[in-house]
Design a protein around this nucleic acid. Sequence first.
DNA 1: CAAAAATGCTGAC
DNA 2: TCAGCCTTTTTGT
Length: 281
Amino acid sequence: MPEGHSIHRVARVHRRWLVGRRFTADSPQGRLDRAARVLSGRVLLGVDAHGKHLFHVFEEDVRLHIHLGLFGRIRHFRSEAPAPSLACRLRLASTAATLHLSGPSACELLTPEGEAALRARLGEDPLRAEASPDRAYARLTSGRMPLAQALLDQGRIAGVGNIVRAEALFLARLPPLLPACELERDAFDTLWSAMRTLLEDGARDGLIVTPGAPPLPSPGRKRAERFCVYGRTGLPCPRCGAKVKGQTLAARTLYSCAACQGVDRVRRPRRARAGEGEASR
DNA sequence: CAAAAATGCTGAC
DNA sequence: TCAGCCTTTTTGT
């Protein structure tokens, strides 16, 4: 669920169906009782998404901040809502719709100042209209860390997760381990455009399907193949047929096609040029 | 059934 | 660098 496109999709759905409604809130699991009491009885005035963060504004400047983390989920029901799961942390109900929130890494009430402070720490979000490619380029290329690692830093660019980074780097044919500061502006423009397209289409359709992804696999396989390299270690690259590589970088799996993306031609930082599939700091 | 994996991030070492 | 958080879905026996 949770890369930027999912969050923006939730925001769009909530703006369409929930803004202007008065809600009652409770916390079936119990942990958010206090927040639920504050929210209960208030009208929802607006919803906004920035990167992977979601902000609901209620009457009297009561603001709800949600971050789904790895496990979080938001479900909404426009007709009769089912009983919430045991793990449901927050339920928001109106006559028009009901929300169930489970497993978020953050769900808290914020003051306007608290929200502003949080947002100040977020980088450019390709899905936001006011996003500036110039600022995104400046922030992304401000260090020597591998490009792929910089892309997941939400303070540089907000909303990109492991799937979008792998697929966008593949579409732009960029070597993931290139030192970020060595990224040329025109290469960045290609990358930015790829990220925007993936996120925008994903927000519209509810899931990401990379252009050029291999055709659906044999009927025997359960999971649809929607990506070119993400999660496809050892399978053929849809562009050149070479085997897709999976390696660990900063505790996340990084997927790429070494042949298409020139991974092997990238200068390794100093000494270590160790083996394949190894973490490179 | 049990086990594993997952799109994320933080804080402690 | 690593464990921990925390839930749902998918995979394997």
